[in-house]
Amino acid sequence: MTIFYSPNILENSVLSEEESYHCTKVLRMKIGDLIEIIDGKGTLYKAKIVLPHHKHTQVDILESCPGFGMSPYRLHLAVAPTKSIDRFEWLVEKAVEIGVWRITPLDCRYSERHRINVDRVERVVIAAAKQSLKAYVPQIDAMTSFEDFMNQSHYKQRFIAHCHQTSKEALHRICKPHRDTVVMIGAEGDFSIEEVAVAEQNGFVSVSLSESRLRTETAGVVATNIVALQLNG
C-alpha cells in the first residue's frame, strides 16, 4: 500500500500539495482508495480517500498505529558531510533505512563541506522513512561545530570513530544494548588528534569500525548498522 507523509494529518485530514499531486496525478488514486500516512512523529494512519484533488486531497482516518516501525533505542549520528553532497545524502538515506533517530552534520577541523541545505536533506529523510516503513522521521540538524556538539551530547553511550593509531575498542564489542547512543564520524581527513582528545575528555570512547579504512559515508552506514544490531539485542 502506498505511504504518504503528512505531519498534521490529524488536524485537517488533508494531504499536502506535494503529496496530493503525487496521489492524484502520478498514482491516479480515486475516491475510496485506501492509503497509509505517516506523521513523522511515530504514528502510521490507515485512511481512505474521500475527496481527491491535486492540491488538497481529503482523507478519512480509519485506524492509527502508534510507534509503527520505531526502534527501542535512540541512535544519534554526528557526521562531517562529504564534499560531494550526493555521497552525504546516500549516507543519510541508508542510515534512516537502518534506523537512526537524529543526524547532526559536523563542522570539524578537516571538514570539506561547511554548509548543507537542510530542506533538501530532509526530503531525502522523508523518502527513506516512507520507503523503509518507518513512521518516525529523524531530525536533521543544521551544520554544527565540533565545539558546540561537545556541549550538547549527554547520552549514556558516546563513541568517536577515527583512524588514529591510539587505543581503541571495536564498536561491536563495546556497544551495549538498550541504551541511547551517539556516534561521531569525521571528515575524509578524519578528526584531528586534538579533537579526539577533547571528545575523550567529554566522555566519548574511541572506537574502530573495521580493519579497513572506510570512506566517511561508508563509516556512517557501518556504524549505524553495528549499533542497530547491538541495541536491538
Rank of each mutant, 00 (worst) to 15 (best):
E18K: 13
R74Y: 10
S71I: 07
H114T: 07
K41A: 12
P52D: 10
A199E: 08
E93W: 00
H53Q: 11
V26M: 09
N12H: 14
G233Q: 12
V205Y: 08
P177W: 09
V221F: 06
G32M: 09
S64D: 08
A47N: 06
R123A: 12
V222N: 09
I9Y: 01
V207G: 03
D107A: 07
M143I: 15
S71R: 10
H76L: 11
C163E: 08
V50L: 11
E89T: 01
L214K: 04
L27I: 04
K83C: 04
E89L: 00
I9V: 07
G32D: 11
Q139H: 15
D141G: 13
K55M: 08
A187F: 01
L44N: 10
F88K: 02
I98F: 11
D119L: 14
E89C: 00
L214T: 03
H162G: 06
A223W: 02
H162K: 04
K134Q: 00
T43V: 13
I226K: 08
L77V: 13
I160H: 11
H53P: 01
E194W: 12
A128F: 05
P72I: 12
D60A: 12
D180L: 07
C108A: 13
H114D: 02
S208I: 11
E169F: 11
T57K: 09
K25V: 09
D86S: 10
V221C: 06
P177G: 02
R158M: 12
S84I: 10
C163L: 09
R109L: 13
Q157F: 09
A197T: 14
V125T: 12
I126G: 00
N232W: 03
R120S: 12
C175Q: 05
P138N: 08
I193E: 14
H22R: 09
R173A: 11
R173C: 05
I9F: 08
H172R: 05
R87Y: 03
H164S: 10
A127L: 07
T218G: 00
L44D: 03
L91N: 02
R158F: 06
V183Q: 02
E89R: 01
W90S: 03
A127T: 09
V96A: 07
